[in-house]
Computed example of a mutant assay.
Amino acid sequence: MRIAILGPLAATHHGRPVAPTAAKPRTVLGLLAAYANDVVPVETLIAELWPDAPPRNARTTTQTYILGLRKLIHAAAEAVGAVPDAKQVLVTTPVGYLLRVPPSSVDAGHLERLANVGHRARERQDHQGAARAFAEALSWWRGPAFMDVQAGRKLRVYAQRLTEIRLNVLDCRIEADLRLGRHHELLGELSTVTAQHPTHEGLVAHLMLALYRSGRRCEALDAYQRLRAALVAEQGLEPAPALGRLHRSMLNADQATTDLTETWQATHGPARRTAPQARIPVEAAAMPWSVAPQA
């Protein structure tokens, strides 16, 4: 069985679609897929299906939904001449139900696995490897998780967790691309994503650096002011100190062409006495924006 939850819910068994079309059975499949290979108690399913007031026959109705899912799984196997295995795929336990699938069958697992590969590459300062792994992780994303599923509290929390993972992976992929000197290529994407997340300080910092290195210092400074206004208005907060240091460095910077076109990697490398000095101090421009420079 293969299951996709990073966007519209989709499931296939032996290549045949098995996702139900009715709302509540889709919720059951979504919850079982989110916690694949773990037992989901009946009470948890009932709470997800009827968050306010479960009907008296809630348990029986839930069993009916499980039977319906098994029929779809059975029919998919039968259609291709495979051994019917519905009860081995959707398992009944003393307390609930378990969807037994290989870990690689759920797309969210690939997102998290590749994100971990990217983080390990990032720790090794392998920016090319990190950018590649993070980009591959993001390629599994087809839209908001469970976007066509009637989600209760449990699925909403799980979907929010996946959204946070995606945003973190996006942040890290853009940072890796900046370190590889891809500031011109990132401007369109960063303009869009910071409009969607106007108070995300990491993404705005990336936008500032990309604009600065593209010769657009005034726009980089404007991006900081928009972030500051949004933070003050929405949360009563000033930008983080590291972001303030980056802003001050840009305010004091000379707009010399050599400074503006210098790649992140060049700035990140060890300083040489004969090399032109970047106007943005190395500790502000080369290190991840959230890391305070050493005294």
Rank of each mutant, 00 (worst) to 15 (best):
E43G: 12
V40W: 11
K154L: 14
R273K: 14
Q150H: 14
I5W: 00
R120Q: 11
V101S: 11
P288N: 03
V232I: 15
T257H: 09
V83S: 14
I3T: 13
H110T: 03
Q294N: 12
S104Y: 13
G81S: 03
A75H: 08
F146C: 01
T92Q: 15
V42Y: 09
A210W: 08
S214T: 11
R56V: 10
N57L: 13
I174A: 09
R228A: 12
P25A: 05
L260H: 10
L207R: 11
I46K: 14
A131Q: 01
E189F: 11
T44P: 05
R26F: 13
E238D: 13
A133Q: 03
E123Q: 14
R182W: 02
E234Q: 15
L178I: 07
I66W: 08
K71N: 11
H127F: 15
L67K: 14
T27V: 04
L138K: 06
V95Q: 09
R113E: 10
P144Y: 02
P54Y: 05
A240G: 07
T27I: 01
P293N: 06
A284L: 05
T93N: 05
L67H: 13
A11S: 08
G152N: 03
N57D: 09
V117D: 11
A145T: 15
H268C: 02
A176G: 11
I66H: 12
G118P: 08
A278L: 12
W140M: 11
P103D: 15
T267M: 10
T274V: 15
T62A: 10
P276E: 00
R248W: 02
N37I: 08
T199K: 09
